[in-house]
Each structure stands twice: as structure tokens, then as C-alpha cells.
């Protein structure tokens, strides 16, 4: 996790399922609130697996950033992850960029 201006950048690696989601959620929220940040950028390109628990995690962070008048932004190039993002309908509310630098320069 790193901070860029008022945004928290989280690079997720490995598998994001129900088991992993609980710990990741706590870490992100603690860091986000402790540092008084506004936006969250979730980088998903290095995830090798994600199921609907990941969708729940993203929806929850969308809620938190909205409450703080911020934005949640996703970065992902991997097709398998994009497939479940697409079917969830999340991309109607959340911006998705293929690369982190694009997410930063466009926001």
C-alpha cells in the first residue's frame, strides 16, 4: 500500500476469495482512515484469482470512499478478473483503467 497525494494505492496479489478478503478489508480501511485519505485505487492486475467475495470487497470500498466524497478506481489488465468485474455490473459505477499511471493521470 502506498499513498499518492490524497489517494491510497493498494496493489493486490495472489488470490482474493472470502478467506483473504476479511484481512485485506481491515488493512485497507485502517490505513485509509488513519491517514485521512479521500480516494482508493485498487490494482487488481496481479491477482491470480477473484470470486464474488472480491466484488463484495470492491463494493464496500466504493461505499467508504463515497461517504468521504472520494472515488474508488480500479486498475486491471487481466482478462479473468475483468470477466467477473464485467458481469457484476460494478463497472457502471466505478472507473477501470488498464494501467496505474493512466488511473493517476486521468484523475
Amino acid at each position: 500500500m502506498e499513498i499518492f497525494e490524497d489517494s491510497l494505492i493498494v496493489k493486490l496479489k495472489g488470490e482474493l476469495d472470502h478467506h483473504a478478503a476479511e484481512e485485506i478489508r481491515k488493512k485497507i480501511d485502517n490505513y485509509y482512515l488513519a491517514n485521512d485519505l479521500v480516494n482508493i485505487i485498487l490494482e487488481l492486475s496481479e491477482l491470480t484469482f477473484m470470486d464474488s467475495s472480491g466484488i463484495g470487497l470492491i463494493m464496500g470500498r466504493y461505499k467508504i470512499t463515497s461517504e468521504n466524497k472520494g472515488e474508488l478506481i480500479l486498475v486491471c489488465e487481466r482478462e479473468s478478473i475483468k470477466k467477473i468485474l464485467n458481469m457484476s455490473g460494478l463497472l457502471k459505477m466505478v472507473k477501470l483503467y488498464p494501467r496505474l499511471d493512466l488511473a493517476i493521470t486521468n484523475n
Binding site: A21, R25, D51, S52, I55, M87
Partner: peptide, 14 residues
């Protein structure tokens, strides 16, 4: 309250 998306069966079906 557990941040479940409610998408489980929809994912299986799709």
C-alpha cells in the same frame, strides 16, 4: 453486513 455481494449463484450460473 459481511459485505457479501449477493452474486454467488449468479456467478455459478454464468
Amino acid at each position: 453486513n459481511l459485505e457479501r455481494s449477493g452474486m454467488g449463484f449468479t456467478v455459478m450460473e454464468t
